[in-house]
């Protein structure tokens, strides 16, 4: 390192001669932090997204590298949030990458004391069979005066406020066609 580079590397010199007289920014930066790059800079892709917590609807940018979410930040373009996120929105990456997330199907037999594993495809098939059985057992064609009912009160569902509109649409459409009308979500709670 030459003498000039040495002096220029000295924070006080940079503070006095540079654009940062208060020494809070560039002047105080160490060589190590100058060499650091943000996770967001090298991201392969960025998805425009929306915070999954409350209904303010803050804009998010989801940074992805090698098929993994590396960072989630506020979207500065959003007229709602202007790039800001609260503690929950800021924790979104920890939410989606949490080691506590379940990634396999779990099954508890009646009267069992433990969980077991189950193939997703088998689970789907078992659930379909149980829906058909519940309809069989509890189906109501007509009321006492012969007016149509076309329904089962043997099936209930709760949830939707954390889901997408498209998902809620399919849920309601399918349940309605099944004759299941006891469909509810957080909007009732």
């Amino acid at each position: 390192m030459g003498i000039r580079a040495f002096i220029e590397g000295w924070p006080v010199y940079r503070q006095l001669t540079g654009t940062d007289p208060l020494g809070r920014g560039a002047a105080a930066q160490s060589g190590r932090s100058a060499r650091l790059t943000a996770r967001t800079e090298g991201a392969d892709t960025v998805a425009r997204s929306v915070c999954p917590y409350c209904a303010v609807g803050c804009g998010q940018r989801v940074f992805v590298t090698d098929g993994r979410v590396t960072q989630i930040e506020g979207d500065p373009d959003s007229p709602i949030s202007r790039g800001r996120l609260c503690p929950k929105g800021s924790a979104s990456r920890s939410l989606v990458t949490s080691p506590l997330r379940q990634t396999t199907v779990r099954y508890r037999r009646p009267y069992a004391t433990e969980w077991e594993d189950l193939e997703l495809d088998v689970a789907l098939d078992m659930i379909a069979d149980r829906i058909l059985a519940a309809r069989e057992q509890t189906w109501e064609d007509v009321d006492s005066e012969g007016r149509p009912l076309n329904r089962t009160l043997g099936i209930s569902s709760l949830g939707g406020a954390t889901l997408d509109n498209e998902e809620n649409y399919l849920i309601k459409k399918l349940f309605t066609a099944m004759g299941a009308l006891q469909i509810e979500n957080q909007a009732r709670i």
Partner: peptide, 20 residues
């Protein structure tokens, strides 16, 4: 101020027993 990301949506396109 509603409390869930899409609770308004799940009322408009409802998963509710009394609405279509």
């Amino acid at each position: 101020l509603r409390g869930h990301a899409s609770i308004q949506g799940s009322t408009d396109i409802p998963t509710l027993f009394n609405l279509l």
